[in-house]
Structure formats: C-alpha cells, structure tokens
Amino acid sequence: MQTITKNNQSAERPLGTGVKGTSVIKSEGTMEQNVFEINDLNLWYGNDQALYGIDMKVPQNKVTAIIGPSGCGKSTYLKTLNRMVEMVPTVKTSGSIKYKGEDIFSNKYGVEDLRTKVGMVFQKPNPFPKSIYDNVAYGPRVHGVKKKAVLDQVVEKSLKDAAIWDEVKDRLNENAFGLSGGQQQRICIARALAIEPDVILMDEPTSALDPISTLKVEELVQELKKKYSIIIVTHNMQQAARISDKTAFFLNGELIEFDDTDKLFSNPSDKRTEDYISGRFG
C-alpha cells in the first residue's frame, strides 16, 4: 500500500471525494451546518509536499476524528485549520479553507481572530509556568478582559466545563506544573474553553496520558460537543470509534476517506481504509 506513488494516489482521489460527497449531501439533508469547508488544500514544507488536494466539510457540533499512520499529515492538517502550521517559516499552501464562509487565508481575516474562534489543545500538556488561575484567565486577558469579577466567573466556568473544577478549586493560585499530566491536560482544555471558541482542535490530546486520564478526557470530549465543534487527531482507532461522529482517514498526505464513524469502521469504501482499520499496516 505504501509503495504506491503520490501520482497514483492523486489519481485515485476522486473515489475518496466521491464517498465523502454523499455524506455531505446527507448532512445537508438534515439541515446541519459546516464550520469548515476545505477545498483542494495543498501544503508544502519547503519543497516537500505534505498535503495533497484535501477536500472536506467539517460539521458543526460534532466530533470529527482524524486518523492515519504517523507521518500521514493529520497533525499538519489540523494545524492548518487555525494556521498554527505557519509557525514553520517555510510553509506554503494553496487551495482554500473557509471558516463559516470566510476564507481564513484572506488578508482581511486576522490570524488572531481565527485562533480566537478556533482553539487548540496540544499533544503534550503545555500549561504556562503560572498559577492555575492565570493559565485559564490567560485567553480572556489577552483579549482585553481585565475585570476580576468577570475573570473569576470565566475561570470557574471553564474549569467546570473541563471537569477539573472539583480537583483544583482550593488551589487556584498554585503553579499548574504541580498537577498530574492528566490534570494539566484538562487545565489546558479549560484554558482553551475560557475564550469560548466555536471549534476546538485537539492534536492527539491523550497520547501523553495514562489510561484513566485518557478516559476522563474522552468523557469530557463527549460533553463538550454539545457546545463546541471538535476536531480531534488521534493515532488510536478505538478512541476515534468511541468518541467521534465522523472520521477522516489520512494516508501519505491525502484524505482517503471521510464518512460517518460507524460507516467508516464497519463498512469502509476504500480498500486502504479497510487495511488500516483492520490493522494490516500503520
């Protein structure tokens, strides 16, 4: 499977998009809205192309999982959605990404505005070396909220939404580094929730966590999708199957298949998807 050249894959792409197309029609049929519409997205690191002609429509208030073997471009793709990928100076993109109808690459649309709407949780818990309170209050403060009473309210609500309030409410002024890895990750989720984004991007958020912490984060994701649209990259297929509504399978920088999670895992349309989910490679 992996010996297939890039050109061959490009040639096969219409199959993948075709499958995805039907699912979109179904989504539109049920009057669901999309937060992201990605059209023919290509991405290069310097001269190396990492993403090939991605087309995808990400539904609102759903959990969308992105799976695929390591190096398939799933993390790159996720970071393109809030333009974090541009932290690498040599990155070039082509194609369009529309967030609620607005082109995120357009000059009129500020990257800070985009990231205010599209929050992110990272692979490794990365709290600031500050107190728990200051971690969560960071976003609102950056965006100009200074009133203590408002901040208190936002911090409490965010920590509650991230299901960690009970564990930390008595030590909000302690350094976040003192918490366990799982707690730190939920603090990072609370930090992302504090500015109430529409979309939360999660980049393998449980890969550095123990099974119990992982379970807590998974439960949390289920809870959060009532309010937020979540896109989660995971290397763990069971996790994708457990928590997502839709799943996209990436391989070598290409979107192979994108469908309802149930459908994709029980009856994949593409042979490569089937090989991957049945554990034949990756």
Binding site: N82, M84, M87, E112, D113, L114, R115, T116, G119, M120, F122, K124, N126, P127, F128, P129, Y138, G139, V142, H143, C188, R191, A192, I195
Partner: peptide, 17 residues
C-alpha cells in the same frame, strides 16, 4: 519551551502579547 509559546499563539494571542 516552544510548546508554551504555541499554546499562547493557539489562543489568538499576538506575537508581542
């Protein structure tokens, strides 16, 4: 560490912020 800078940018903070 680069990851806490990413966390800040990820929340829409500007470079100087």
């Amino acid at each position: 560490p680069a990851d806490i800078k990413e966390a800040s940018y990820g929340m829409g903070a500007s470079k100087w912020q």
